[in-house]
């Protein structure tokens, strides 16, 4: 069975998802940063504009981290933490005095859906890293015996001293080690 192909396929899907979440994070962050008052009004939480702006900065930083990083696992877990903060903030607006309660419910539902995606992505990335670590340990043991030489390296040291270094690659005599 071509396990390499299957694993590679799954890995690419997970990384594509992480990438998508990175761009989503940046888009949401920019919206929060440039239109915090409109968003706050829509949520019925007029005093929360500065908080939304701060969350916008967080979203942009997380998104950039995901997109720029070779291993976005930590950044995606960071998004999960951010989701929890968003949910808590939104929940505080879910009271009977809020005329926009329905909008809060919509926002909560959306954030919950994204949280599930973030969680799935972060877990998949973490388990991929586990697999890598295991493969790395196996490889470390196996490659420790691959010298490529006929005999141990100590015996092979200097086996090619018969090779004549071409004139254009020789070290000038003045720079060679002193003969004792």
């Amino acid at each position: 069975m071509n396990t390499e192909g299957t694993l590679a396929g799954r890995r690419e899907e997970t990384e594509a998802l992480a990438h998508g979440l990175g761009w989503f994070s940046i888009a949401l962050g920019v919206t929060e940063l440039v239109a915090p008052h409109a968003l706050a009004r829509w949520l019925g939480m007029p005093g929360s504009a500065p908080v939304l702006q701060a969350y916008g900065v967080r979203e942009i930083a997380t998104g950039a981290g995901i997109l720029a990083s070779d291993d976005p696992t930590g950044w995606v877990w960071g998004r999960v933490g951010g989701d929890a903060l968003d949910l808590a903030t939104l929940a505080s607006g879910l009271n009977n005095d809020n005329p926009q309660k329905e909008n809060i419910a919509i926002a909560l539902g959306s954030v919950l859906a994204v949280t599930l995606l973030d969680l799935a992505c972060a877990s998949a990335l973490s388990s991929r890293n586990e697999q890598w670590r295991a493969a790395r340990t196996r490889a470390q043991h196996a490659y420790g015996r691959r010298s490529g030489f006929k005999y141990p390296p100590e015996q092979m040291r200097g086996a090619a001293r018969d090779f004549k270094i071409p004139h254009d690659m020789r070290t000038p005599e003045l720079l060679q080690p002193l003969k004792r």
């Binding site: 790395r136 470390q140 196996a142 490659y143 420790g144 691959r146 490529g148 390296p153 100590e154 092979m156």
Partner: peptide, 13 residues
């Protein structure tokens, strides 16, 4: 910084 590559390097002397 890759452990298995360092292991292979060590094997080569």
């Amino acid at each position: 910084n890759v452990p298995e590559r360092l292991a292979m390097a060590k094997a080569g002397g």
